Computed example of a mutant assay.
Amino acid sequence: MTKDNSSNKVAIIVAIITSVASIIAAIVTGIFGLRAVQMQKEAESTSSAMQIIATQGGETQVVLEATANAPTSLPYPTYTPYPTNTAPAIPSLTPTKSKTILFEDDFNGGIRPEWEIAFGNWIMSNGEFSLSQIEEIDITNNKEKWSYGTAIVGDSNWQDYTVKAKINLQDESGNCGSILIRVQDSENFLAWEYCYFYNFTAHTNNMASWYLVQDGKWTEIPNTQTKDFPVDKQFTIEVIVKNDVVQSFINKELVNSFSGFPFATGKIGLRIQSNSISHTLSFDNVVVDTTLP
């Protein structure tokens, strides 16, 4: 290659580069120019808008005030409030006093050790509490063979309580049993005695009565006799003592009540007196609790 040809090629390359540079410069200039025009138009539009607001501000204020003071063409409807349902009042209930079991014995597991045996030979007979020993005691100066026993249980500070028990008064002449309340000891208490006698001058068949027993002396409380209660089948007796008032029930039926006696507190007890060798009265399901009317 000659020297002249090399010089021509360099000249051509330089010319091409120069042309490309000119084109790029023109494009950049055009872009910035177009942006400047747009910015100028935006500025002119903003200025015109501000002038319109400035010149028409008064008219706009008037229009706004007129609109604010103008009456509404369609007033809002008035609604009647939906009726409120009043929930029914919850009745106030008087709390029920809780029942406290002070003592109970169903004799299924034998005789509980809490029983204090004052007299007699108490045994279990067919799952019930009864006597077995026949003793000779003096009744109205006549010597007779009798089963006789007293069993006591509870707290000497017991005051108001209910005593319940099931009684099996056998159809045999000379069976007597008693529920004892407010027991001080074996010779001072209140006794509800029920007996079955046949041709016995002191009683007529089956009867029950309350006695005040002091120092071993039995005094019948007036107007407390009850006659014709069940014989030869199990029945339920219940005694409620509250303050100085006593109520007596046979099979849940109130049979008598009385008040006025000297003992303010005391234990409970069971008593049997019988001259029947083969069939002696028995007790079952003894419960003492604080259920009161």
Rank of each mutant, 00 (worst) to 15 (best):
G174P: 11
E144K: 06
G266C: 00
Q56A: 10
M39C: 08
E238Q: 13
K227E: 07
N69E: 13
N206E: 08
A68Q: 15
I277D: 09
R271D: 15
S22R: 02
Q56L: 10
K99Q: 08
T150A: 02
T80E: 15
D105F: 02
K99I: 12
W192M: 01
I52W: 13
G149R: 05
V245D: 15
N243M: 10
P88T: 07
I12A: 11
G149C: 11
V62P: 00
I111G: 01
F261E: 07
L64P: 00
I221N: 14
V183E: 02
W146Q: 01
T80K: 06
N168G: 15
V10P: 04
Y148P: 03
T80L: 11
L180C: 05
Q159Y: 01
I277N: 12
I237S: 10
G266D: 10
I12E: 05
I250A: 15
Y196F: 14
E135A: 08
G260T: 15
N142R: 06
Y82M: 12
N142M: 06
A68P: 04
T201E: 14
K242I: 05
I27Y: 05
K143D: 04
A21M: 07
Y161Q: 09
F249A: 00
F197T: 02
N85V: 01
F261A: 04
Y194T: 03
S47K: 12
Q234P: 09
Y148R: 03
W158P: 00
A191P: 09
I31C: 09
W158Q: 12
N285G: 01
W115G: 08
F119Y: 14
D4P: 01
I101R: 14
D228K: 01
L180E: 12
V183R: 00
T86V: 13
P95D: 01
K143H: 04
N157I: 00
Q40P: 02
L254P: 02
D232L: 13
T72K: 07
N251M: 01
V286W: 09
S156I: 05
A191W: 13
S45V: 14
E238D: 03
F200Y: 12
A264P: 12
N206D: 10
L180G: 06
M207S: 08
V63P: 00
S19H: 06
I13P: 02
V28H: 05
T162I: 03
E136W: 05
S73C: 03
Q184K: 06
G154N: 03
Q273D: 05
T224M: 15
A26Q: 10
E144H: 05
I13S: 10
V241H: 08
G260E: 08
T60R: 13
M50L: 06
F235E: 02
T2D: 14
L131Y: 03
G57W: 03
N188D: 13
K227N: 04
K233Y: 14
C176G: 15
K166P: 00
A54Y: 09
K242R: 08
S186E: 05
M39Q: 12
